[in-house]
Design a protein around this nucleic acid. Structure first.
Lengths: 350, 350
DNA sequence: GCACCTGTGCAAAACCCTTTGCATCGCGCA
DNA sequence: TGCGCGATGCAAAGGGTTTTGCACAGGTGC
């Protein structure tokens, strides 16, 4: 059990060194009862010298609080989720809380569920769940919400009402993107939306279609390959368009790339608008015009709700926080017609 | 204390429901002693029905193991560190361990230190520390290594020997980058290295200078702004060069951008090689030629060392794992002289 | 028929802290 | 002088597991 490592001191040992009881040491640390200044000083000196800190497990056992919250994200490697994570961690730090993070990871469901174990065995006091994962077991999540402060960030799960959510204003974002294209003069616009079941997808599309009610809406997944296939099928079927409204930046990037591979210039021939403003959006060429989500702020807010419920020892109020969104205009959009009118050759629809 | 949330069952309550002692329940769960099949079945059914899991705090208190490891990264938002984090989390999952992550964050030292609290109070059983943070208190880290399995990833801290490290082969990486430029025919090359005190900086420079022993070496920090300043001073002082070896991708990106802003074409006039292969490297235009580090694998290995020490209950052997590195050739490098000979106008050195 | 296992289950100790209830001391106030 | 109260510190009771030491039953082998 020792593995050759030093064993830390216990509070009792500190107490003995200071010639007091462990109660007194505890009070010196927590400040919950007054302690004589001289005594306190002596105790503190010994604590300092020994590098002592109370064993968290014992404290947790006693208080029922682990001072840890969980964070579930689909993929920490994605810059959007990483920004959320940063916000969560930052805020947790403000409350003296730690963050346990789990990737739900689309692929490996079994691993994705591991966080449930963490919740059930009381390792964590609360949870920030970042959606986008349709595979997860909503029943289980619902049951958990009855046991811990739980907030959903980025994606609401309509199947789970009575839970707090923090999301971006996806409708407004869609509207902003669409209006931009519309104001530039685009009239033939295509929507490359995200996965169907996602609430955010629906809302963004709703925003898009306020300006382009008759736009062709294609659904795909949030990755470049899917976007490339959609572009291929569009061109292959001779659909003509001068603008693309993408469900997120990954789709936008995939679309831009495939468009250019097929000789369609962006933004000269076709304009593309993304959603999220991931790191790559600003760095790619043409730099992507996109709807920026306040990802880090989203993480902060979500964490705040969880932590406030914990600190106040109050149940979570199932409110929706909707964060404003911002259009960032870069190089991937321009007025149509700068190039040749975008009537692409290709097979006729069969 | 309840906050309106349900209270989970205890092992004793499960035992009562099953008509056995909690010892028996414990044995059913752990399998450490044989239990009558019928009894075990009954107990398991009740556990299942109740959704019971042993309270982790109580178990930790008893066993001295929290089944949690810590992960410290400078910034989870940076794609290189995010990939490391993913590797760590993935591996931890394989061992049924959870991961607590802390951003050391260059700015906020106080918060950066929070992880020390986690270690000292026994919240975590081990730590993967990802360096690049010169501000951290090495003394403290050294003391901790005596108490827990600790491994350094990405960056070795020479001040802390007798600790396991997992790093990339920075010398080889530097060599690869330099050889590439040399083989293309470059002879006047400039090195935009990272911060001086970092071991990795030194090693990369050593690799660079094997091919370009007389190259001008400028040190800066790992960000675009710093790289831009360096480029400015180079050009401003009339230094002529056809190649740039960057200490990492952030520097490379900053260099490429500033070069282009000043009318120097990449790679026509100047070739640039990065280091890391962050997400942006492949997405930017010109796509960045760079030395790819196996970041995720680095995280995996580091976690493996920590977790193996924990599982085997053995001290960590202070070995260095060095991961191979790979040159990814993209668009930011080409033979020199394709454009005008790179003799830039500018002030003479004063 | 006896000593001895194996299989099975329980009681109790230990893990280290927080919190509550007491006890003591000294002092101010009437 | 006496009473009450604030300041100070201690002992002891949990909190929920895991683990250890026993105990008992039913075989087994001689």
């Amino acid at each position: 059990m020792t593995g050759g490592f030093e064993r830390p001191l216990t509070m009792g040992e500190i107490a003995r060194l200071a010639g007091v009881s462990s109660t007194t040491v505890s009070h010196v640390i927590s400040g919950k009862r007054p302690v004589n200044a001289a005594t306190a000083g002596r105790v503190r000196a010994i604590i300092e010298a020994a590098g002592y800190a109370p064993a968290s497990a014992a404290r947790t056992l006693q208080t029922g609080r682990s001072l840890l919250i969980g964070l579930v994200v689909p993929d920490i490697t994605h810059s959007f989720f990483a920004r959320i994570a940063k916000g969560v961690e930052e805020t947790a730090g403000d409350y003296d809380y730690g963050v346990i993070f789990c990737s739900s990871g689309q692929s490996d469901l079994a691993r994705g569920r591991r966080y449930l174990g963490l919740l059930r065995d009381h390792t964590i006091d609360g949870l920030v769940y970042v959606g986008s994962d349709t595979a997860i077991d909503r029943d289980e999540l619902r049951g958990l919400a009855a046991r811990f402060p739980l907030v959903l960030a980025d994606e609401e799960l309509p199947e789970i009402p009575s839970v707090a959510t923090v999301t971006s204003d996806n409708v407004a974002g869609g509207r902003l993107a669409a209006r931009h294209l519309h104001e530039l003069g685009h009239r033939k616009v295509v929507v490359l939306a995200g996965p169907v079941p996602l609430h955010s997808t629906t809302e963004r599309v709703r925003g898009f279609t306020e300006y382009f009610p008759n736009a062709l809406v294609l659904h795909g997944s949030f990755d470049e390959a899917s976007a490339a296939r959609l572009i291929d099928s569009l061109i292959g079927n001779g659909v003509s368009f001068t603008g693309v409204l993408a469900g997120n930046d990954d789709i936008a990037v995939g679309a831009v790339r495939r468009l250019e591979e097929r000789g369609v210039r962006v933004p000269v021939d076709v304009s593309v608008v993304g959603f999220d403003d991931v790191e790559l959006a600003a760095g790619m060429r043409p730099a992507l015009t996109t709807v920026r989500q306040a990802a880090q702020e989203m993480g902060r807010r979500a964490a705040q709700i969880v932590l406030k419920a914990l600190v106040d020892d109050a149940p979570i109020v199932p409110a929706s926080t909707v964060l404003p969104v911002e259009l960032v205009i870069r190089e991937s959009t321009a007025a149509p017609g700068a190039g040749a009118s975008q009537q692409m050759e290709g097979n006729q629809p069969t």
